[in-house]
Design a protein around this nucleic acid. Structure first.
Lengths: 102, 102
DNA sequence: TCATTGAATGAAGTATAAATCATATGATAG
DNA sequence: CTATCATATGATTTATACTTCATTCAATGA
């Protein structure tokens, strides 16, 4: 798959599962599919499908180690991206008073 | 709607239409629904639905001007967010050689 | 007050993406 | 070369999001 537009990249990040995978890789370093499977308690094939999409837009990298494939996060992009959202939420989406509700 | 997780915010940005709206507001400043409708050639109600989602996570702000509702972009978040993706694509997703293909 | 204009809402149909299952590939060990 | 383990792939089902249409609401002006 070739990603052409901004929304394609955001689409890959719009899945709770994939965000969890990225957060795991970010916190605990590189993992192979089986390790992710065991820690997140999801099917192997679901993870492979997710990794393919994450890889497709280079949010992760992969390296072969024998039969395993070890995935690592692209911190250069993901960390500042997540930080931006975190700051945005803090600035605009935490209701300290009752100014907005929906 | 209350957004709770990273992926909720990315989901809102995962639509080509909504990204176009944000880019329009970013380039040309605040617009009311009718102006967006005319420039992007989409249905009024489709835009209203999109604006609701964009508003829900504060990617845009709204102000009443008579019968019109004028939407403006939250530049503080959107500009750095889009810049990050732009830089990421430049760094990782432009093939200068034939190292990867999918 | 009633008609008009701009926009929001809700429900229905339609399109897209995710979850699951079965199977295939590819590396290693025996 | 065969069996096994790790992962990938493709097809199908299932869930989610988008589009569209009809209707409603809210503000203004006659």
């Amino acid at each position: 798959m070739i990603y052409t537009s901004f929304n394609d990249f955001f689409a890959v990040l719009s899945s709770k599962q994939r965000v969890k995978i990225l957060q795991l890789l970010n916190r605990e370093g590189p993992h192979c599919v089986n390790q992710i499977k065991n820690k997140l308690k999801v099917e192997q094939s679901a993870i492979s499908h997710d990794m393919k999409r994450l890889l497709g837009c280079r949010f992760v990298f992969v390296e072969r180690k024998g039969k395993e494939r070890v995935y690592s996060i692209n911190k250069t992009t993901i960390q500042p991206l997540f930080n931006l959202i975190r700051e945005h939420v803090e600035a605009h989406c935490v209701r300290k008073d009752d100014k907005w509700n929906d």
